[in-house]
């Protein structure tokens, strides 16, 4: 769906701002919002550019820089920390060869931190796009990443 098609499915009320931004972002392989997107959304909802920019930069789920196809979010909350999320983070950095906030050169993975994913029962956990992977160790993590690499 193009941006214009997405906009048309929503009413022109400012309550829809977050939903529209999510929709536009998810419809792109690179999972990000361009300046043009924000401009068009602000015109559509009669909001100012500044206001929409403020919202889009406040929420960490939105990005204004191109991201990878798979966004890996590593849980940083205490339960995961106790169960070894630091090891997971270090391992991810080693496997992918990127730091937090960066994207791999092939455009497949972006590494991000997140606060609690709500699955403390299976800590340590990560989330790749919409899916949660729990009870991770080095071996399991490696498998998950390999699987994602294979799908392409």
């Amino acid at each position: 769906m193009s941006r214009e098609e997405i906009l048309k499915t929503y009413d022109q009320t400012s309550d829809n701002l977050l939903a529209i931004l999510h929709d536009i972002q998810d419809n792109k392989d690179e999972h990000y919002l361009t300046r043009e997107d924000l401009k068009k959304v602000s015109d559509y909802l009669d909001l100012t550019y500044g206001f929409v920019h403020g919202v889009a930069t406040f929420y960490s789920m939105f990005s204004l820089k191109p991201r990878g196809k798979n966004i890996i979010r590593v849980c940083q909350s205490p339960p995961c920390h106790l169960m070894g999320s630091t090891t997971i983070s270090k391992e991810l950095i080693k496997i992918l060869g990127i730091k937090f906030g960066e994207t791999t050169k092939d455009g497949l993975f972006t590494l991000e931190m997140t606060s609690c994913l709500g699955v403390c029962g299976v800590a340590p956990a990560i989330m790749i796009n919409d899916q949660v992977y729990g009870n991770l160790n080095k071996q399991r993590l490696y498998e998950v990443i390999e699987e994602k690499r294979r799908v392409k």
Partner: peptide, 20 residues
């Protein structure tokens, strides 16, 4: 009712000003 400036980013990266 102008909304020219806004709070951009969050936490310690916050700045105030117009978009971009």
């Amino acid at each position: 009712k102008s909304s020219v400036i806004s709070l951009r980013q969050r936490g310690r990266f916050s700045t105030i000003g117009p978009a971009f």
